[in-house]
Design a binder for these strands. Structure first.
Lengths: 122, 122, 122, 122
DNA sequence: GTGGTCTAGACCACC
DNA sequence: GTGGTCTAGACCACA
């Protein structure tokens, strides 16, 4: 996995996992890779994964069983979606619209670029 | 002024100044506050303002005259707008659309919230 | 059975069993479930139950007869009560009172909540 | 500072600090020792203090300013008291009463030992 | 100087 | 084998 420089690796991994849960790539109740496994897979230090998992656990997205491993929580998808939507509407969208306002970009101006980008994502 | 922790204070101040120039709150050719003045006004270390001004100067948005102060460049508005638009379309919008995609939010879903936010900004 | 993460599962099971003995849910001289049975009932690894039983045996609360199983000791109730009382007065109560002190809670403040909780337990 | 073995050092330090804030030993709005300072004072690794501070920050008890340090939040006392009281009444007291019930200890039985312990704390 | 983060390696309790 | 925690040391951005 490649990482950006603007955000901590641990948080990027946590985001990546929550997206994989949201899209169903990782199933509910499924055991996720052990700290050491994922560390090797991602090419980072195990401590970094520990912090990623701690972040997700504090949001009740995953839970752990001593000596066994981490599991995706039952309502993980719901929690992630709510959390992300809240961030989107309360934080990102207002900032986004502020930019639009400053730059004189209207809602209509976004139609074409957004639909183009959405196509590319698929 | 209040600052976020995710971005450097100097850059936040530079953004703030460029927005004030773009909206006309600071006029073209006008002398902007001295480093020390602005430092007091913003409640930060003068060194931080120095870096903010250096950032703006490197983008040719302001220029300095030794012993006199910093002045807004003639075509500051144009430069800022271009720079910001480029950032908006190349960086922010793609990330924004990615979020929409993940959360299942369509272009149409944004119509109401965007128009509401635009009203509030005025 | 549900387990807390702060304490070993084996010890939590040992506590649970000793409470069942103390309240008479498991009778004196009675044979307690086999390691494998209890492991299935509790949903844990048999090794964990082995450690739970070892813990109880080391306190002379249960004893085993090879090839037959584990039995509750004659004076199990007395032993458990003494052991628990000692822990209660020497360890838990002092810490409990420290908390009261810090939070400004008096002995009298506890009268109502304690009597309410005692009712619910019955 | 001496540490127990039952709980992580980082959490013990966080608890210690919150008690010092609660009792007024550390004042509101006051700057608390830097990560490195406290690490030396406590005789632990700076990373451990980082985790202590992160714990307190996640509870909005302290806040940080980049490159300057950590400060006690305005309503830190209130937050700590609420948080602790909630834990006390919802978690510790019920468990405490459960123990009392099992051991046949009544509310009245606690009067003397509690008042003795309270005296010692002063 | 400050905090933030990552790596490396160790030891522990637990299953 | 699993996670939890601590130490040690490094580099970064920031004030």
């Amino acid at each position: 996995m490649e990482f950006k420089n603007s955000k901590g690796i641990a948080l990027q991994i946590a985001d990546n996992l929550s997206e994989r849960i949201l899209t169903g790539a990782i199933a509910i109740d499924e055991k996720i890779p052990s700290v050491r496994e994922l560390a090797v897979e991602m090419g980072v230090n195990p401590n970094t994964i520990v912090r990623s998992y701690a972040e997700l656990q504090s949001k009740n997205i995953i839970s752990n069983q001593r000596g066994i491993g981490y599991f995706v929580a039952k309502d993980a998808g719901k929690i992630i979606k709510e959390w992300r939507k809240q961030e989107f509407y309360n934080t990102e969208l207002p900032e986004f619209v502020r930019q639009m306002d400053i730059l004189g970009i209207s809602y209509a101006d976004l139609k074409t670029p957004i639909s183009n980008l959405l196509k590319n994502n698929q």
